[in-house]
C-alpha cells in the first residue's frame, strides 16, 4: 500500500497548530461565561455524547461522588473535554448518584 500523504504532512501539522492557536482567541470571551457549579442538563448531554465514543456508558451509581471527580478529570485528558464539560458531567453524575 503506497501512501503519498507524507508529501503534505508538514503543511498539515503546521495547519493543526494554527487552527488550535486560533481557537484560543475566543478563550477570554468564553471564560466570562464560566459556570463554576456545572449544569445537570448540559452534563447529561456531554456524558452521552462523549463517554460512549470509546466505552460502554457507566452507571452514575457505580462510584462515590468524590470518585466521579477524579474519574471525570482523568477523562478530561483522555477525551479532550473542556473544563465546562467536565464540571457539567460531574454535576450530572453526582446528582444522579
Amino acid at each position: 500500500m503506497k501512501i503519498n500523504l507524507f508529501k503534505v504532512y508538514k503543511t498539515g501539522l503546521a495547519s493543526l497548530i494554527v487552527i488550535i492557536g486560533l481557537s484560543f482567541l475566543n478563550v477570554s470571551v468564553a471564560e466570562e461565561k464560566k459556570d463554576t457549579k456545572g449544569d445537570f442538563a448540559r452534563g447529561a448531554k456531554a456524558w452521552v455524547d462523549n463517554c460512549v465514543r470509546c466505552h460502554n456508558v457507566r452507571d452514575p451509581k457505580e462510584l462515590r461522588d468524590d470518585q466521579w471527580i477524579t474519574t471525570t478529570f482523568h477523562m478530561r485528558i483522555r477525551a479532550g473535554l473542556t473544563g465546562q464539560q467536565t464540571r457539567d458531567i460531574i454535576k450530572f453524575l453526582q446528582t444522579s448518584n
Binding site: 493543526l16 477525551a79 464539560q85
Partner: peptide
C-alpha cells in the same frame, strides 16, 4: 498540551500537541 473546544454549533473539537 491537550484539551477541547466547544464550537458555536455545539459540536466540539479536541486536540493534542
Amino acid at each position: 498540551a491537550r484539551g477541547g473546544y466547544l464550537m458555536e454549533s455545539n459540536n466540539s473539537m479536541n486536540y493534542a500537541l
